[in-house]
Design a binder for these strands. Structure first.
Length: 802
RNA sequence: GCCCGAGUGGCGGAAUGGUAGACGCAAGGGACUUAAAAUCCCUCGGGGGCGACUCCAUACCGGUUCGAGUCCGGUCUCGGGCACCA
């Protein structure tokens, strides 16, 4: 009977389900906990992609190993189910998006089960369940009560094609991240979350995390902490003052003009009548320009003179005030002091508009601004100082005058949190007739999405929920106050900000989750998902977690202790898989043709987990061939005969190596090398005269983490009634790793000239003696003097001669 | 432009500063078979030599070291992220 993967996989899939094999009793605190989490998928209409099983297999291997190591393992799965594609499907077919979404979830779930992942389905959640989004809404209401949510009429990224506003993070190069549609800037009433209030902690606590360096760097850059100074410039003629932000206060003596952003409130006031027309025209154009147009002419450096002058507080010099759109209204104070000699942008602007340069650091400024460190000149008391010294001197001088101080700025902006869509969590707020925003009391949550006749926005651009009818829209509070319900919904990110919390206690209707359980289970020990979420989801989730920490819901500062990004599975041609390239592989087909175990093994063996790896049909064949080779150990008559209850010692070394390597490599998520160690062991088994049964069992345990179906079948065939799931993780005798004879490389002046087998315990003199006797070494030593000998026990002997 | 990361056989990839190419894929040769598949054995970075051997080789240039794919400095190429953040 050869390897019939379909039979084996169906058999054990059924058995696991019947025995509820992967159920996790979260109340069992008697064993150490391990929480291993996947980024939950958006259940799209296309079903699972071969990219999904990569990360899922990685976490599944860890989950299975940890169970065998005696941990109480929480390994859940759920659905990030609100989202645009379902809404677009609903609009097109005029059906409710929920039906389509539920159908997709069912399909995903079946596909995931077919792949043998050991999820505890009793913990399953979907962000679209009212029992789930009740608590998403609750968190939002709490944020509103804590002044972290507010309404603002801000210039937003509006995407006409999608009919909604997007977060800064959702816009790339001036087009929507999803779909690539043009985005324009226009002012609109929006809900905002004050993520900026957490900027410092979001930056600082990155140091607590075991995350990929690239992701930490990306978050750091996104938060964009920058230490500098705020300096006040008075306007000539008593029109008040404005503040600028600079990280180069040391160059203040080199300031030759100032620049305001087109959005700056002072512009209207200070512009002289002669300049009025030009300034108004410039401001009007600058405001209407999209981000895309702005970013396209970075080189342009346009701007106009306002006619006003400001006083440089350090030396009383009057400098002209310009308005230019290279100054951003939303960063710092929306105004800068320009030092063209030492800032590239100011240099460009000054050259273009004929403004003077004052050099305050030694260096060449004939072609470009000089931005390196150096000695200050033309700077009065700061002459001769370097950048850091000059900064300190000038800032403290400004402080004395009351004209400046040290400040910290962040690039991070508040999060635009409302969307003009139907298929999202309704924002649980009523705008009372007196204009206040009233969060719904807890007992009125969840606020369930109302049924509508159609799902597109209204003709006059209002969100779909505006069509819900007066009965839903009109609201009267218990105290008689009246208002209108909010018709915006939350962005897709909302539900994914806290789902890892809900898995711990998914059916709780009194709280997000029981506090005692949260304290026990958080933080997540290992979180695996795509690098595309390096800033968006992972920053938002950290923000919400910190808020929940502040209001006492959770007791740890960070949600995800260790993070890992799996690399992409590329098409066989090395390009990204996509329908248009025609290189998409469907996992269902592979399960049918090669089996789930082969798919899992192939994806883990193809290369390092974090690297992008091309799909390979022959590689998949190879994976299946290895499984067959493993399976023959318990299936092929001649091999079965070799299995022995007594140990002849022939596999001691190979077994110890395999267990050690696999345990360490699994822990490090280095599955490709762990699998190669298993291959080496299996090759040894084929060479051995007998196979010690207990070694074979240990191997099957390790192997079953990657290939659970065939692993379970082999375990059964080895005579076990119980599932392999909770068997103890294999150990080995450390002494089996010690070998008596080792091959020592002998080199002369660093070049290997011979490899000699020596006693492992041999010392330098002994090794030198053996090496000198070698016919390959002798010629190199004749007539030479040995100047130095380097000996690394068990590895190398290097003889330096001259 | 700035910030990360990566460049190793025909291919995917291994190598605590210590025998470069583990393990696998592909290819070639052989065994078994009426035949095929499967399986098993052998070869498999490049040059030179009948051969024992020998020289070259981890993108490129330099450095540190007894010894560098690995550490340091510079260059090039590719991938990812940010992008007028003062």
């Amino acid at each position: 009977m050869s390897y019939d993967f379909t039979l084996i996989e169906n058999k054990w899939k059924k058995a696991w389900e019947e025995k509820d094999a992967f159920y996790c009793d979260t109340h069992d605190f008697s064993r150490p906990k391990y929480y291993v989490l996947d980024m939950f998928p958006y259940p799209s209409g296309q079903g699972l992609h071969v990219g999904h099983p990569e990360g899922y297999t990685a976490t599944d291997i860890i989950a299975r190993m940890k169970r065998m190591q005696g941990y109480n393992v929480l390994h859940p799965m759920g659905w990030d189910a609100f989202g645009l594609p379902a809404e677009q499907f609903a609009i097109k077919n005029n059906v409710h998006p929920e039906g389509f979404t539920r159908q997709n979830i069912a399909h995903f779930k079946q596909q995931i089960k077919d792949l043998g992942f050991s999820y505890d389905w009793s913990k399953e959640i979907a962000t679209i369940d009212p029992s789930y989004y009740k608590w998403t809404q609750w968190i939002f209401a709490q944020m509103l009560r804590h002044d972290l949510a507010y309404v603002s009429n801000v210039p937003v990224n509006y995407c006409p094609e999608l009919g909604t506003v997007l977060a800064n993070e959702e816009v790339k190069d001036g087009v929507s991240e999803r779909g690539g549609y043009p985005v324009i800037r226009m002012p609109m009433r929006q809900w905002m979350l004050k993520i900026t209030a957490y900027a410092e902690r979001l930056e600082e606590d990155l140091s607590l995390l075991d995350w990929p360096k690239s992701t930490l760097d990306m978050q750091k850059n996104w938060i964009g902490k920058s230490i500098g100074a705020e300096i006040e410039f008075d306007l000539v003629g008593g029109h008040g003052s404005f503040k600028v932000f600079t990280t180069r206060a040391d160059t203040l003596f080199g300031c030759t003009y100032c620049c305001l952003a087109p959005e700056h409130p002072l512009i209207e006031k200070i512009t002289t009548p002669e300049q009025k027309e030009a300034v108004e025209a410039y401001v009007k154009e600058a405001k209407s320009r999209s981000d895309l147009a702005r970013s396209k002419d970075v080189k342009g450096k346009t701007g106009v003179f306002t006619g006003a002058y400001a006083v440089n507080p350090i030396n009383g010099k009057e400098v002209p005030v310009y308005v230019a759109d290279y100054v951003l209204g939303s960063y710092g104070s929306g105004a800068v002091m320009a030092v063209p000699a030492h800032d590239e942008r100011d240099y460009e602007f000054a050259k273009k508009h004929g403004l003077p340069l004052i050099q305050v650091l030694e260096g060449d400024i004939s072609e470009t601004a000089y931005v390196e460190d150096g000695k200050h000149i033309n700077s009065d008391y700061a002459d001769g100082l370097n950048i850091e010294e000059a900064k300190a001197a000038i800032i403290s001088h400004l402080e004395e005058m009351g004209k400046g101080k040290k400040v910290i700025n962040y690039k991070l902006r508040d999060w635009i949190f409302s969307r003009q869509r139907y298929w999202g969590e309704p924002i649980p707020v009523v705008r009372l007739d007196d204009g206040t925003e009233y969060p719904l009391p807890d007992d009125q949550l969840p606020l369930v999405l109302p049924e509508l006749d159609s799902y597109e926005p209204t003709k006059d651009g209002k969100p779909p929920l505006a069509k819900a009818g007066e009965e839903w829209l009109s609201y009267t509070a218990e105290d008689g106050r009246h208002g209108q319900r909010e018709t915006n919904t939350m962005p897709q990110w909302a539900g994914s900000c806290w789902y890892y919390i809900r898995y711990i206690d998914p059916h709780n209707d009194k709280a997000l989750a029981d506090k005692q359980l949260l304290d026990h289970w958080l933080p997540v020990d290992l979180y695996v998902g795509g690098a595309e979420h390096a800033v968006l989801h992972l920053l938002y989730a950290r923000f919400w977690h910190k808020f929940l920490y502040d209001i006492g819901v959770v007791s740890c500062k960070e949600p995800f202790k260790k993070l890992f990004h799996q690399g992409m599975i590329l098409g066989a041609n090395g390009e990204k898989m996509s329908k248009s390239r025609g290189n998409v592989v469907n996992p269902d087909d592979i399960v049918k043709s090669h089996g789930a175990d082969a798919l899992r093994l192939f994806e883990m063996f193809a290369g390092p987990l974090e690297e992008a790896k091309p799909w390979s049909t022959t590689g998949l064949d190879g994976a299946k061939r290895f499984i067959e080779r493993v399976y023959r150990l318990v299936d092929d008559e001649n091999m079965v005969k070799l299995i022995s209850e007594t140990n002849d010692g022939s596999l001691d070394f190979a077994y110890a190596c395999m267990v050690k390597k696999c345990t360490e490599d699994y822990e490090a998520l280095a599955f490709n090398t762990a699998i190669s160690a298993m291959m080496v062991f299996v090759n040894e088994c084929y060479k051995a005269k007998s196979i010690y049964k207990s070694y074979l069992e240990g191997f099957v345990k390790v192997f079953s983490c990657v290939c659970p179906f065939v692993g379970e079948e082999m375990w059964h065939r080895l005579g076990h009634e119980d599932l392999i799931t909770y068997e103890a993780w294999p150990t080995y005798e450390p002494k089996h790793l010690i070998i008596a004879k080792k091959k020592i490389a002998v080199s002369i002046n660093g070049k290997t000239r011979d490899v000699i087998e020596m006693d492992a315990e041999i010392d330098q003199d002994g090794a030198l003696k053996e090496a000198s006797a070698s016919s390959k070494i002798k010629p190199y030593l004749e007539g030479k003097t040995i100047k130095k000998v380097i000996f690394v026990p068990g590895r190398i002997l290097n003889i330096v001669v001259a």
